[in-house]
Computed example of a mutant assay.
Amino acid sequence: MSERTVLDGNAVEAEERVGGVEPEPERADDPGRRPRWPRVLGALLTVALVATGGVLFAQGQQLRDTPATANLALTDTEATTRVTGDVSNALGRIFSYGPEATALAKDAAQQVLAGKALRQYAALFGQVEKQAADQKLTLTTHVVRAGVTRLTGTSAHLLVFLDQVYERRGRPATTASAQLSVTAELRDGRWRIVEISST
């Protein structure tokens, strides 16, 4: 049964006692009891921060792994200068010879060429030696400009512009220009040309 009690002029509904024990109302200001919502909110914030960090890390990794950032020709001036110098020097040595000095170019090719480039050069060099001897031909090659278009730790691709001066005995010298596409690889600490093609 319920009975109405009037306290200080306000009507309060008293609940029926069950088993003679009246339940004790929960008090928010109980010092031994903490609300759960701060812990739940803290856990949600932690999950959100971890997820955001993972997404940002993945995006940063993608930016670092783009072809542009992998191309050292855009970021490593010292390596770019070195490969440009090595390739330019090599081309000047293998494409410069005289009627009595073709052996120097042939020896240089063994040192600075490898792979496909060395095989092509060896196949053509017999004709070069004959032509130089028959026509008393001297060829001098100068690299006018070389640009590295792609560079990694072990390989490079370059565009090279050459001036070649042909001198035949008894005739005036003539100059011709050439443009080459060159691929080089770093082998045993030295850049060696592995492919050459005209462009």
Rank of each mutant, 00 (worst) to 15 (best):
L118R: 09
A133K: 15
T149Q: 10
G153L: 10
H142F: 11
T102E: 09
Y121T: 04
A105R: 11
G126S: 10
G115T: 05
V112N: 06
R119D: 15
K136R: 15
R119H: 03
V148G: 05
L158T: 06
L139M: 13
A122T: 14
L139I: 14
R119C: 00
A123P: 00
T141K: 06
K106P: 00
Q135E: 15
F125S: 04
R150A: 13
G147V: 14
F125P: 01
T152K: 04
G126H: 04
Q120Y: 02
E100C: 04
K116V: 04
G153I: 02
R150Y: 11
D107L: 06
K130Q: 11
T149P: 01
T152P: 07
L159I: 12
A109E: 04
L158P: 06
A117M: 05
T140A: 12
H157P: 00
G115N: 03
G153H: 06
R150F: 08
L158F: 09
L104Y: 07
A122H: 03
A132V: 07
P99Y: 10
S155V: 10
V144H: 06
L124T: 05
H157Q: 15
G147P: 00
A156V: 13
H142R: 08
T152D: 13
T149N: 08
G147K: 10
R150D: 15
D107T: 07
Q131T: 12
R119G: 02
Q110N: 09
V128L: 01
R119I: 07
F125Y: 10
Q135R: 14
A156Y: 11
V112Y: 12
L139N: 05
A133W: 02
S155F: 06
D107W: 01
L137N: 05
Y121S: 02
L118H: 05
V148T: 15
A109G: 04
K130A: 13
D134E: 15
T102Y: 09
D134M: 01
V144K: 12
A156I: 12
E129F: 03
T149W: 02
A105G: 11
T138F: 09
K136P: 00
Q111D: 12
L158S: 12
A133P: 00
L137V: 05
V160N: 03
L104H: 08
A109W: 09
A156R: 10
L151H: 11
V128S: 02
A146T: 01
D107R: 08
A133L: 10
T152Y: 08
G126Q: 04
A109M: 04
L137D: 03
H157D: 14
L113I: 03
A105H: 08
P99L: 06
L158M: 07
A132K: 09
L139A: 13
S155N: 09
Q135A: 13
